[in-house]
Design a protein around this nucleic acid. Structure first.
Length: 866
RNA sequence: GCCCGGGUGGCGGAAUUGGCAGACGCGGGGGGCUUAAACCCCCCUUCUCGCAAGAGAGUGCGGGUUCGAACCCCGCCCCGGGCACCA
């Protein structure tokens, strides 16, 4: 209607845990279940009249779709991240750089002298998809391992809320950390809600700091710190219980204590370990390291408040400047020398006498001091921070000294970890990977795709106690030996291979489905290059590296995807971009988070949810089956029994009413309560529109060619103008309100004259078409049109009708409205002032007082100050 | 604990982002149509006082800036979400 070529599609991310959990609960094969659910949803959405292009709809479980998911996996597997050029490149280029010597090999051994296994290991270590023996999140309750992002803060599974344990396993990982910088930086070029960007920034967690080496009898201990400027205050060190140097650092007399502590730490589950209200614990290793800035001996402790997974798993503790170190030092009686002079306000805010200079006494401090404050006691023969008042300055001086003296270097750390990509489930994409007799992974050639999921009788994961953290998982695919063991010719004759029996996580398909919408039936490629460029190429025609990123013009989705789907999809897209498969640097240029629909729910006295639809309200109380029930409020769902299905709404009110109600109940991005009782308002509106145009008794059209009265015309054009801009800004609720106002005025006209002016009938029908297409289409055809209204132009407002000859000004006296005056529209300030001051009501309100000041805001209002 | 959102009539929500608070819808009240009811049409509906004209108060609470604050600033309170010993 406004001249755009629109691609609007919706697909089904149908692999993964929710589908499989449902299949297990019902005992029906997930494919059967998935397909019937998809069919039902397609039917419901079709009935809603959304303009999705059905030809472009895909399901990630379609064999024709996951063939390309596997293909993209191979692209990732066969790539490495070249830090020098800052992008992914084909792995064959790495091999040739190693071979020619253009790039030094891991131990600077000549490539040709390395064994095939050594060469292979060197290459595999660079791949963007790689196998790793790493601690993973093992969830026996689900029978699978989970990505970090799928584990909640209290150490349970996002889905199902089962306990999660750390376990060492060999798993596929995706090197998303290689893209940490670009994932962070490119957020600035996206049109996304700021809170979502912030969540991604926090998740990526970039922090600038330094690596510093502390010499010790067990070798150098490298720490990561964001505050190298506080090195002079480092009075002890702490390493994580899992740190590889713990053994070597521990002296004989401390060995039993340290080992007991490590064992206790290992036995703790994630919940205990993350509970930060608990008191700090730790043990001394018996060994001292050397602080590089002053040569002082600092004791090395083991404590579980230091995490192996972040930084280097070891820290320098600066108790005066870090709250955690401060608590630890207090607990174990370690000294806390001050190295910064807190400002006077810091002491005053804590009810302390101000302390100054080198005599600053931390014994009286209730907590560590973090912030800008002049350094004290911070100098050696080569560097002095004393007297400097800014942390930035302190850091840069110390970094320069560390680098110059070989004790460390500036570095950047990220919270983001590599993405765990294996799941021990049935309902997911099989990996296009087999293992040879040496148990080494071999990628299948493109010609062998897709690797189809075998049909299994029993697709359930191994049944385990949710608290059983001992048993290893056995993936369902291991049950089919004939699928698992295959003879293939991968170039060196037929050999026996074993297939990978893990499957991909549920996020794999949704990492790229938007690309398949563009070209859903392409047999040769996942998406044609020109097609991708047409729909998703950078809007400024640039290369995507700077300027516009390209990507989907508008992606509407929920906030729950902030750090999972939206981060993974960006990562895959960037790999495809680097390898030249797509022209857009980001998958989704504009993101809009719609709110949730929430609804009242009711519980009986036993606390059981009762069907909300059958609850009756009497005198502000609620009753179900004669019994009083209590009301609560939450996201629509099965557990609260407060779901309203679209089918009920279609049957009772019609799809157009349902659409209109959903859009009118509030702004698109806000969560809103569903209240079926309110739906009737939109139905009445549509009935009034209908009756204004169609005679209810005869079915004849009630449209006249007489001239539209000027007032109605003006309202019509103001409405057109307002609805246009509201629709443009996705403000459907206010657009609908404006249309209702217009129709209410029209109703009065029809009541008086018996018919609707044709001009108004045509325009209102066109404006309604995007909102309630079924009725608009019907009216359109009754108005004598044979073609669909869908491609009719949206009405244009005549600007000459948007303004009246006169306008009303409110006149305030001391900020309170006391009168209203009518003024010619273009009147200047002086004229408005004269009329205002001469107005009877104003004169009465002034009661003879002389105005001190008269403020006239042209086109707005007048304020008289007395 | 830290970081984001948000708090406006009986309810969902408007308010051109510093300029008439409460658009529009629900609910409620009154009237018309009808033998009657439903539907429909018209009027009223932030609260308090008042028969009324009108007056006063009012956007979570307390201050402030401004001729003027729902909107900006400071300090709190509540609700929702994210992160959580990340050095």
């Amino acid at each position: 209607m406004t001249g755009f070529n629109v691609l609007h599609a919706l697909g089904y991310d149908s692999f993964g845990l929710p589908a499989e959990q449902h299949a297990i609960a019902t005992g029906v094969h997930p494919r059967v279940n998935t397909e019937s659910n998809v069919a039902n949803m397609r039917r419901q959405l079709r009935r809603l009249g959304l303009g999705h292009d059905a030809r472009r709809s895909v399901a990630t479980t379609d064999e024709d779709f996951y063939r390309w998911t596997q293909w993209i996996f191979l692209q990732v597997y066969n790539s490495w991240y070249d830090e020098t050029s800052g992008r992914a490149r084909p792995i064959v280029e790495l091999e040739s750089e190693f071979a020619t010597g253009a790039r030094p090999t891991p131990n600077s051994v000549a490539w040709s002298t390395m064994s095939r296994d050594e060469q292979r290991a060197a290459i595999d270590n660079h791949r963007l998809a790689y196998l790793s023996h790493a601690p993973v999140n093992w969830c026996p309750g689900l029978g699978t391992i989970l990505a970090n992002e799928e584990v909640t803060a209290d150490g349970r599974s996002d889905i199902g809320n089962y306990p999660v344990f750390k376990k060492n396993m060999r798993q596929w990982m995706m090197r998303i950390t290689a893209y940490a910088d670009r994932l962070l930086d490119d957020l600035d070029r996206l049109d996304w809600p700021e809170p979502i960007k912030l969540m991604q920034r926090n998740w990526i967690g970039r922090s600038e700091g330094a690596r510093v080496d502390f010499a010790s009898p067990a070798g150098a201990i490298t720490v990561f710190t964001t505050r190298p400027d506080t090195l002079f205050g480092a009075t002890f060190m702490v390493v994580a219980p899992e740190h590889p140097l713990v053994e070597a650092l521990t002296t004989d007399e401390n060995r039993s204590a340290v080992e007991a502590y490590r064992a206790a730490a290992a036995a703790k589950d994630a919940i205990d370990r993350q509970d930060d209200t608990r008191e700090k614990t730790g043990v001394f290793t018996g060994t001292y390291a050397t602080n590089p800035v002053d040569g002082s001996r600092v004791p090395v402790w083991v404590a579980d408040y230091v995490l192996m997974g972040y930084g280097t798993g070891a820290i320098m503790a600066v108790p005066c400047g870090d709250q955690r170190d401060f608590e630890f030092a207090r607990r174990f009686g370690l000294p806390i020398p001050a190295i910064q002079q807190p400002p006077a306000e810091w002491f005053e805010a804590r009810g302390l006498a101000v302390q100054s200079g080198a005599s600053v006494d931390t014994n009286s401090w209730p907590e560590a001091f973090v912030g800008d404050g002049a350094y004290i006691n911070s100098s050696n023969s080569g560097v002095s921070l004393d007297g400097i008042e800014s942390i930035e300055e302190g850091k840069s001086r110390m970094n320069a000294w560390l680098a110059a003296n070989g004790h460390g270097e500036p570095t950047i750390n990220f919270k983001l970890r590599d993405w765990l990509f294996s799941r021990q489930r049935y309902w997911g994409e099989p990996f296009p990977i087999v293992y040879d007799e040496d148990d080494q992974p071999v990628a299948l050639p493109e010609s062998m795709l897709p690797v189809l999921l075998p049909e299994l009788e029993d697709f359930k994961p191994q049944a385990l106690d949710p608290n059983d953290d001992v048993t290893d998982p056995i993936p369902p695919l291991a049950r089919s030996n004939e699928w698992r063991n295959v003879v293939l010719d991968l170039g060196d004759g037929p050999r026996t291979y074993r297939r990978e029996i893990n499957v991909m996580p549920q996020w794999a398909g949704s990492c790229w489905y938007e690309l398949r919408y563009l070209d859903p039936t392409n047999r040769e490629r996942f998406v044609d290059g020109d097609v991708e460029k047409y729909w998703m190429g950078p809007a400024d025609g640039g290369d995507g590296m700077t300027g516009h990123t390209g990507g989907v013009d508008l992606y509407v989705g929920g906030v729950e995807h902030a750090v999972l789907h939206l981060l993974y999809a960006r990562f895959w897209h960037k790999v495809l971009f680097d390898l030249g498969h797509v022209s857009s640097a980001e998958p989704f240029h504009r993101l809009f988070n719609q709110g949730y629909v929430q609804a009242y729910a009711f519980r009986d006295p036993r606390g059981q949810a009762v069907p909300a639809a059958e609850v009756e309200e009497r005198d502000g109380k609620y009753f179900f089956d004669g019994e009083e029930v209590t009301r609560e409020y939450g996201k629509m769902g099965k557990s609260l029994k407060n779901i309203v299905t679209p089918d009920e709404m279609y049957d009772d009110y019609g799809a157009d009413t349902f659409r209109l109600y959903e859009m009118s109940m509030g702004p698109l991005d806000a969560s809103r309560p569903w209240n079926t009782r309110d739906v009737v308002g939109m139905q009445r509106f549509l009935q009034r529109v209908w009756r204004n145009v169609v005679d209810e008794n005869t079915g004849d059209i009630k449209v006249s060619d007489a001239e539209t009265p000027l007032e109605l015309r003006k309202l019509l054009h103001r409405t057109i103008d307002g609805v246009r801009s509201d629709m443009d800004g996705l403000r459907f609720n206010t657009a609908i309100a404006k249309l209702i106002e217009l129709n209410n005025a029209l109703t009065q006209h029809v009541t008086a004259h018996g018919n609707t002016p044709r001009e108004v009938a045509l325009a209102i029908t066109r404006m309604l078409a995007p909102l309630c297409p079924h009725m608009a289409e019907e009216i359109w055809s009754r108005l004598g049109h044979t073609a669909t209204i869908t491609y009719e132009p949206f009405p244009d407002a005549e600007s000459s009708l948007l303004q009246d000859d006169t306008m009303e000004y409110p006149v305030q006296i001391n900020g309170k409205v006391r009168a209203r005056i009518v003024v010619a529209t273009g009147a200047d300030e002086t004229a408005v002032r004269e009329i205002a001051l001469g107005d009877d009501k104003v004169l009465a309100a002034l009661a003879g007082a002389t105005p001190k000041k008269v403020i006239v805001v042209t086109g707005r209002m007048v304020n008289i100050v007395v």
